[in-house]
Amino acid sequence: MRTARLSSGGRTEEVGLGPSGEASLGGRLVRYAREDAGGGLSRLATGGTARRVLAVRDGQRVWVWCDGSVHVFDRTRRARSGADHGAGLSAPMPGRVRRILAAPGESVARGAVLVALEAMKMEHAIRAPRDGVVKRVMVREGDLVDAGAELVELEPAKS
């Protein structure tokens, strides 16, 4: 049996697939039958319920359409490394950096706008989550950034 480690909506599961229609899901054994449903879709039956499914993999992410609902799975490694150091501020959405309102070395108060990000028709303010000193600014005005891209590194205020 081979296993994939997947997480979706905060839940992480080891999914094991056996050679003939058996799967292990979070320690449970699930029997399934899968057949071609045409048009690229499959019909996957578990526990007496057949569902139409379509899955597409995109790097470490798998998108699954299942009977009208979309589920997003991320393939995760067992050992999680590179934990969030907690000092950086990242982009909540992809967009263009409109304005940078903080410079390295500058002291900022909690709530101060550090970066204004624009995506489609919306402007989104990235604010300081606490009082601190700007250590680094990783982007320039006009840059296109992905969701999750680090924008500003903030150090705790020296008291």
Binding site: A23, T46, H71
Partner: peptide, 10 residues
Amino acid sequence: PPDAAWIEAA
């Protein structure tokens, strides 16, 4: 996600 979605994802 129902079981079928986990299995299809795997």
